[in-house]
Amino acid sequence: MTHSAAEARGATPLPSPAARPVLEVRGARVEFPTRRGTLVATDGVSFDIGPGEILGMVGESGAGKSLTGMAVIGLLEPPGRLAAGEIHLDGERIDNLPPRRRQAIRGRRIGAIFQDPLTSLHPLFTVGRQLVETIRFHLDVSEKEGRERALALLKDVGIPAAEERINHYPHQFSGGMRQRVVIALALAANPSLVIADEPTTALDVSIQAQITALLKRLCREHGTAVLLVTHDMGVIAETADRVAVMYAGRIVEIGPVLDVIRRPRHPYSRGLMASIPGLRERAERLNQIEGSMPRLTTMPPGCAFHPRCPEAGPRCHVARPMLAAVPGEVTSAACWLHQGGVTRAAQ
């Protein structure tokens, strides 16, 4: 009987709510129209994030990680736009909503944390003002209730003497404390998803660990899903449940964080892991991946990584591998190595 009830809700039976991903991104393609043609910054980016799950997104500068995050919250800098693909939040498609409804989702259902806490906060308003403003815009509460919630949030993110600090201006806080305020702002309306774009990059190393631990704790407590964008594998290793490795605008590998760190399947991920000091035994000098990521204007045919890939074969020069599960593993990789070999020519 339970079966038919589920079927009655729609043609496609919905999975149980607990298993339904908070965020589903399907084939996201971000384009920048320019005078000399359209630049494709990301293409075919697909991933899910479950409730309370932290997905790390890692890659070099310009790989498209931040753009993916911005596309999800709908804040791509014009003329950049999501040219193809779909974004679903809690099962509802959001990428095609009118601007006003999209804006109502920001802050309410998707929170954001940016790289630099020094510049993320408005310098001319107290942190309390900014918190209350955000809370009252999204939740139907009085000024007094908003202030109480703001105070509770500040305490929750570990601001000492919050009653006093609530009336302070951003410049009166240290970098780490400011990032805590930013996190409080991101969580102000209890969103189901937080986009954290390089949340620790601008901070001292000693503060980084505190902030990642805080983020992890808060998201576990509130059941908030997190898209953690960073170029720091150390942060990913400490914080994320799963990791997506991006290269030249595409996800080249995605899987549970321990699997990807211990057994990276894509040659690029392998290079990335090998270049992290301390994760492996002490090396004479740091490993690095030869060459650099191709520019958007001069994307090579076939696999974008083949010019730098130590294992590239003839097939990699002509055909681009799609992301597919590595046989016998949870991890998916976009590499011919796991899809029939690099030597066989296409077609």
């Binding site: 919250i73 309410r108 954001a112 906060l121 403003e133 955000t134």
Partner: peptide
């Protein structure tokens, strides 16, 4: 950044 962040907080354009 703080304007971008204000938008990310979901504040309307007018504000």
């Amino acid at each position: 950044d703080f304007i971008k962040f204000a938008r990310a907080r979901g504040l309307p354009d007018r504000v």
